[in-house]
Amino acid sequence: MRLGQDGSVPAELSHAGAVTDKAIEYMLGEKLPPLAIASALLGGSLGLLARTMDQSSMLRMLQNAMDSVRAGELHPVHDRSVGRPAG
């Protein structure tokens, strides 16, 4: 799936993201541990990808995700505060 020429998110990606956000909100409301939620979502996502794309495409997608984590793109505020005293 690609961004629009103007950098916009496709409607189906936006919709899937909104549904996922609601599911996460619901599970947090049920007091499920965040690690359990994330693990279940990741496992389900990997299972879906394995059924719908080849292994090399999956590995490229996962490499992009790892690169984003290493670059601090997913939680830049947290990365800047790591190792700094609170206050």
Rank of each mutant, 00 (worst) to 15 (best):
M58D: 02
A11N: 04
K31S: 13
A18T: 10
L28W: 03
E73H: 11
H15Y: 10
L28Y: 11
L28D: 02
G4Y: 14
R84C: 09
V82P: 01
G87F: 09
V82S: 14
S57H: 15
L46W: 15
S39I: 09
V69D: 06
S14I: 05
P76Y: 10
L42S: 09
D21T: 13
L49W: 08
A86T: 13
R60E: 13
S57Q: 10
H15T: 10
S81I: 15
P33G: 02
G47H: 13
M1D: 14
M58K: 00
L49A: 01
Q5Y: 14
G43P: 04
G29I: 12
L35E: 11
L41F: 15
V69M: 10
P76I: 07
M27K: 01
D21F: 13
L3Q: 04
D67W: 10
A16Q: 12
M53Q: 13
G43W: 06
V69S: 11
R2Q: 11
V77F: 09
A86H: 10
N64A: 14
M61G: 02
P10K: 06
P76Q: 03
G43D: 04
S57W: 09
G7M: 09
V69T: 05
G17L: 03
A71Q: 07
L3H: 07
A50F: 02
M58Y: 01
E73C: 02
Q55L: 15
V9E: 14
G17P: 00
L49Q: 02
I24S: 01
I24E: 00
P76C: 15
V77E: 03
Y26F: 06
A36G: 06
S45P: 03
E73R: 13
A11M: 11
L13F: 15
R60F: 05
S68K: 05
D54S: 06
G72H: 10
D67H: 08
A86P: 08
D21Y: 14
H75T: 09
A16M: 15
A36F: 11
R60W: 11
H75L: 15
Q5A: 06
N64P: 04
A16N: 15
V9I: 12
L35P: 00
R80T: 03
R51F: 01
D54R: 00
S81D: 03
L35K: 12
R51Q: 00
P10G: 12
G29D: 08
A18D: 12
M61A: 00
A71D: 08
M1N: 12
